[in-house]
Nucleic acid binder design. Structure first.
Lengths: 200, 200
DNA sequence: ACCTGAACACCGTTCAAGT
DNA sequence: ACCTGAACACCGTTCAAGT
């Protein structure tokens, strides 16, 4: 219905992908959307408000991808591992969107908060199922659901900054670290070794 | 010897702490350092070059703190835990410096690379010692030395962005996640429970 | 070698005005 | 209700010039 607004968000996302946050100038956004350089102010209070809309859209898309991935997998442990690798893949492929979406928002739009909660719910459910299955150690699922994404997030963020394996010798990728962590957490010895075949 | 350069870095660090990267304007930096608004260009090629100097200084200070902490502790496991909590404490208290230091550098100054390698060396040694001690599971120490900081980094970064415990219910702090991870990794049952007394 | 004042291009944001 | 052109304050960067 609000086509102009969508085109503005599209343009902002494209500029973000191409040149990072600094490249998202309202003048370029306006030009790409076919309006003047200050038309965005009729749809968004701020430049930050526009970026928050981009983040919210990305978060909704990611939640949909997670829900899609949660179906069609076999064991809960495979679902959790797939979600982790999906997060890594998304962050690695779209660094600018990744940093924006999970960076600090001074903006507290309800649209954003709702998308974040929805995306989180799918992950909590997968973790709880894996715990019930005995594939993950027991304990507060909220705690485990904080630890696992934190590790994946940190691995991606450090890798993007070039801080993961400095000498270029170890060459530990974020995917490697995710597998290492899950291997350490998955207690059942019979589960080990099935790692490679589960990856995508 | 180069007093003006030091004063410029000081000013940039102060502005960074107070208002984030956007508040670090060369005009303000110059004014705080007592020079004109374009004097920084005689000491740094770029604004990014100035920020890289701030990051390098922070990295050197953090490495010194790590070395200090590595002495005076008893067991290798306690050293590793202390280093992890030190990282969390530093990132939580100085968010802007944390994001700058471990963010992406387009700048590849040797000063920065050297500081990063030195800071990393202390951590690798502590992890290897803990593995020899049986307090951490065996394996490539470079791999473990990538996983542990990645988890700590991700926990801090998500917490700073408000993404760790959304409902405000779970209230998992980065320190909690670090303890959870180490508790899961430390295999020896006799080690569990000594956690609280080791913290700081 | 280090610093300065003036200037340029650019950006976020505002405002009066148009339809 | 949505859009535009002009304008303001600000910033990174450059340059000619000073000591």
């Amino acid at each position: 219905v609000d086509s102009t607004r969508d085109r503005l968000v599209d343009a902002a996302a494209r500029l973000l992908d191409e040149g990072g946050p600094a490249a998202v100038t309202l003048r370029q956004v306006g030009t790409l959307a076919g309006v003047s350089h200050n038309a965005p102010y009729k749809h968004f209070a701020d430049k930050q408000d526009l970026l928050a809309a981009v983040a919210a859209r990305e978060l909704v898309a990611q939640q949909a991808a997670m829900a899609r991935l949660s179906r069609g997998r076999r064991s809960p442990a495979e679902v959790v591992r797939g979600l982790m690798h999906g997060y890594v893949r998304w962050g690695t492929r779209h660094p600018a969107r990744f940093k924006l979406t999970f960076g600090s928002w001074t903006n507290d739009s309800p649209e954003l908060a709702q998308a974040a909660t929805a995306a989180r719910t799918a992950f909590v459910a997968a973790v709880a199922a894996a715990q019930d299955d005995g594939a993950l150690p027991p304990g507060d699922p909220d705690r485990m659901t904080a630890l696992l994404p934190a590790a994946a997030h940190g691995a991606v963020d450090l890798a993007l900054a070039g801080h993961l394996s400095p000498g270029g010798k170890g060459r530990a990728t974020p995917d490697d670290l995710v597998d290492d962590l899950l291997d350490h957490l998955i207690s059942s010895p019979s589960r080990r070794g099935a790692r490679a075949s589960e990856r995508r």
